[in-house]
Write a protein that binds this DNA or RNA. Sequence first.
RNA 1: GGAGAGGUGGCAGAGUGGUUGAAUGCGGCGGUCUUGAAAACCGUUGACGGUGCAAGCUGUCCGGGGGUUCGAAUCCCUCCCUCUCCGCCA
Length: 425
Amino acid sequence: MLDIKFIRENPELVKTGIKNKNEKDTVDEILVLDKRRREILNEVEVLKAERNSVSKEIGVLKREGKDATEIMSRMKSVSEKIKGLDAELRETEEKLNEKMLWVPNLPHESVPVGKDENDNIEVRRWEPDGFVYEKDFELKDHLELGKKLGILDFDRGAKITGSGFPVYVGKGAALERALINFMLDLHIQKHGYTEVIPPLLVNRDSMVGTGQIPKMEDDMYQIPKDELYAIPTAEVPITNLHRNEILNEDEVPKKYVGYTACFRREAGSYGKDSKGFLRVHQFNKVEMVKIVKTEDSYDELEKITNDAEDILKELNIPYRVLMLCTGDLSFSAAKCYDIETWSPAENKWLEASSCSNFETFQARRLNLRYRSKEDKKVHLLSTLNGSGLATSRLMVSLLENYQTPDGKVIVPKALHKYTGFTVIG
RNA sequence: GGAGAGGUGGCAGAGUGGUUGAAUGCGGCGGUCUUGAAAACCGUUGACGGUGCAAGCUGUCCGGGGGUUCGAAUCCCUCCCUCUCCGCCA
């Protein structure tokens, strides 16, 4: 959520940001509601002040045994007026709040203006020493490898649940588990994050807090009976850890890392990159979340991106980092780097991580603040998160890059101590 | 799922419907004392909104929402959460 005062004072700036993000511009409607809200507020507060003081007088009169019927009946009509204005105020505030929840975060000034993913900018690329993009043997894709090696079973997953719910079998399951543990350990031990295992189901307030709702509501799996939602990313429960809290300055920054399964309906995306792991409804992800002072947030964005890249360097998997343009930026993000891993069989780059700075956008929805030692006041914090990483696309790149001409898959060295075996097949 | 108890300021814990934003204690902050610290003593101590250049004035908030009343932390309705017991179950 943006600051209503900021919108009031910089409507054109906000409109430009919304336009660059390809979102719906509701600024004018918001300004009208905001103005109306303040008008009612001014009117009703005068009446409430009167009611408060006169009610006290009535108390005094009654204690002295004096008659107060006349003054009471006068106050009754004041009270009725207040009731009417309060109702109008509530209605206006509800409308305003609803509109405010639909206003996206504004892109940071360093973000290139662009229409869609084609306008994203590659900021760097990394390959292992001696890496070649053109292999000298016939490559199998991850589906074929998974099937031939008996480590991935998409068909039975579809039988049990539906398409997009993969089953990992034998060494496939062990490899998945190894990846998760490897990534967690690296972030905990080398990068200094604190591990959390959060709930996989969250309430509506949590989803609103991080900005998935209202915009992405149809992309969530819902449990209507209990008014809960399956998390699309660990970002939601972890960022919500400190919702409605005022942290001490020395508790900041908070750095969390957590592994969770993630659930996404991916409504309306059928037919596009849909085979195997390229698009799934349930996948595993290790997620990093940072809660920091706003002035530090852009340094922290670079760091969190580097932390994610570290995983791929350790695994020796080629990747590139993109700076997303305004049009490809998610609803809540001010700036975002995507990390894409190389898939030789698909002959393309696959998004395996997204590292974003939300500045105070989520914190304002979350009511997440800290008390400054310097001025003793409370200030909004800033939140960031980065996948570190999602295993599904990573698994694609891993299997395809580490395959041998005779159809086996070598296990990356960094995972040996987690898998206990060095080759699959 | 059934029965009961309870949700008040950072924490603990009072609060006959009427100067209660809320006693008291702890904690925090500032000060006195001290070479320094502790102890003791004194003072101070919420968030959010409106208005104003500011000082200030003002409104809201005692789990969430709604209601009764001139006036609600206190009464009523409803939802949520926590705890205890019973039942069911991984």
